[in-house]
């Protein structure tokens, strides 16, 4: 309760409320979103088996740290929980539309960059399946180069 007859600059109050809104609502939503996004990407990349183990290790460590940060933040305020859940829901819904996440080597940059293949991308899915078939054929005993 502040005496409304006082002439106060509104900037300080505005900055306070903006900061509070960000940390109370947007931040837990972002943490929830990143947690699910990270675990989904980690699962898909890890299961694909085409990426070196140090990459999977670093990704797993970072994702678990984000997740733990989320949990540690929830302790601060119960009101953050719905927003954290909302972020988790948005990320889950988004990832349900993802067919695969691969890590191809960028032709010019020569580094692995995650590439998302969406369920609606029929051409991309077909290319991915052909690449998988070719790799399985190459790995078969008796195949050339093995």
């Amino acid at each position: 309760m502040i005496d409304h007859t006082l002439v106060l600059s509104p900037t300080a109050a505005l900055v306070f409320h903006l900061k509070q809104a960000f940390f109370m609502y947007a931040w837990p939503m972002m943490i929830g979103f990143l947690t699910i996004l990270g675990y989904q990407v980690l699962g898909r990349i890890g299961m694909a088996g085409s990426v070196k183990w140090p990459v999977v290790f670093v990704l797993g460590s970072v994702v678990s740290m984000i997740s733990l940060l989320g949990w540690a933040m929830m302790v601060r305020s119960l009101s953050m929980i719905p927003f954290y859940g909302c972020g988790v829901g948005v990320a889950s819904a988004m990832m349900s539309r993802v067919y695969a996440v691969t890590m191809p080597i960028h032709p010019r940059l020569k580094v692995r960059i995650p590439r998302v293949t969406w369920r609606g991308d029929k051409k991309g899915i077909e290319q991915l399946q052909q690449a998988l078939k070719a790799r399985a054929a190459a790995a078969r005993p008796g195949a050339a180069g093995v």
């Binding site: 309760m1 005496d3 006082l6 106060l8 600059s9 300080a12 109050a13 900055v15 306070f16 509070q20």
Partner: peptide, 19 residues
């Protein structure tokens, strides 16, 4: 000025209290 019964975080911040 007085905190609300359940607390007023704005009355704990340096910038606002300075104003």
């Amino acid at each position: 000025a007085q905190s609300e019964r359940l607390g007023s975080p704005i009355l704990q911040t340096h910038d606002y209290l300075r104003v």
